[in-house]
Simulated scan of single mutants.
Amino acid sequence: MSEQARLSEGDLAPDFSLPDADGKTVALSDFRGRSVVVYFYPAASTPGCTKEACDFRDSLAVLNDAGFDVLGISPDKPEKLVKFRDAEGLTFPLLADQDKSVMTAWGAFGEKQNYGRTVQGVIRSTFVVDPEGKIAKALYNVKATGHVDRLRKDLGV
């Protein structure tokens, strides 16, 4: 696999402005002064992505109480995100990165292994951005199942 840019702790988080499920623009800079968990997932309404999103939904109150907001980003169209949000009762913003430019800037799109083959795609990744906009935690190639519990343990919440 070829090298691709990856973010590390201490890096400035690349800012973005993306439409949410309702077409409203959400920018990372909107969260300055708060910590935010930004996670990238391949596709709404697929089994792994649904499990991960529901785990974030079920942990949202605890994360919010500890000062963490949550943003989910996928290459899906806003219309698909609406259906996903409504079907699963998701209460945090889902953002559409249809051209994958934000995913690429964060190192969450590129070459990955899929069933033994090298393919281009979304690299399931989670980041914690501190109140100053710097990467506090960068986790690449995370598993959909059990990931949120591990993240909560790492964050002490």
Results as ranks from 00 to 15, higher is better:
residue 1 M to Y: 14
residue 2 S to H: 14
residue 3 E to Y: 15
residue 3 E to W: 14
residue 5 A to R: 15
residue 7 L to C: 08
residue 9 E to W: 09
residue 10 G to R: 04
residue 12 L to C: 13
residue 14 P to Y: 01
residue 15 D to L: 11
residue 16 F to Y: 07
residue 17 S to G: 14
residue 18 L to Y: 01
residue 18 L to I: 05
residue 21 A to Y: 11
residue 22 D to R: 08
residue 24 K to N: 14
residue 26 V to M: 08
residue 29 S to V: 08
residue 33 G to I: 07
residue 38 V to F: 09
residue 43 A to P: 02
residue 44 A to G: 05
residue 44 A to Q: 04
residue 46 T to V: 01
residue 46 T to Q: 09
residue 48 G to C: 04
residue 52 E to N: 03
residue 54 C to G: 02
residue 54 C to A: 07
residue 55 D to L: 01
residue 56 F to V: 04
residue 59 S to E: 12
residue 61 A to G: 09
residue 66 A to Y: 04
residue 69 D to K: 12
residue 70 V to N: 10
residue 74 S to N: 06
residue 75 P to Y: 06
residue 75 P to S: 01
residue 75 P to E: 06
residue 77 K to M: 11
residue 78 P to L: 00
residue 81 L to F: 04
residue 86 D to Q: 14
residue 87 A to E: 14
residue 88 E to N: 14
residue 89 G to D: 11
residue 89 G to A: 11
residue 89 G to W: 03
residue 91 T to K: 13
residue 91 T to Y: 06
residue 93 P to H: 13
residue 93 P to V: 06
residue 95 L to P: 00
residue 97 D to Y: 09
residue 98 Q to E: 15
residue 100 K to Q: 05
residue 101 S to Y: 07
residue 101 S to N: 10
residue 102 V to R: 09
residue 102 V to D: 00
residue 102 V to T: 06
residue 102 V to S: 00
residue 104 T to C: 09
residue 104 T to G: 03
residue 105 A to V: 04
residue 106 W to N: 01
residue 108 A to L: 11
residue 110 G to H: 09
residue 111 E to I: 08
residue 111 E to N: 12
residue 113 Q to H: 14
residue 114 N to H: 15
residue 115 Y to N: 13
residue 116 G to I: 10
residue 120 Q to I: 14
residue 120 Q to Y: 13
residue 120 Q to M: 15
residue 125 S to K: 02
residue 126 T to H: 06
residue 127 F to K: 04
residue 129 V to K: 05
residue 130 D to A: 10
residue 131 P to I: 05
residue 131 P to G: 12
residue 132 E to K: 15
residue 133 G to F: 11
residue 133 G to Q: 06
residue 138 A to D: 00
residue 140 Y to C: 07
residue 140 Y to S: 03
residue 142 V to R: 03
residue 144 A to L: 01
residue 144 A to S: 11
residue 144 A to I: 00
residue 145 T to R: 10
residue 145 T to A: 13
residue 151 L to W: 04
residue 153 K to T: 12
residue 154 D to S: 07
residue 155 L to F: 03
residue 156 G to K: 02
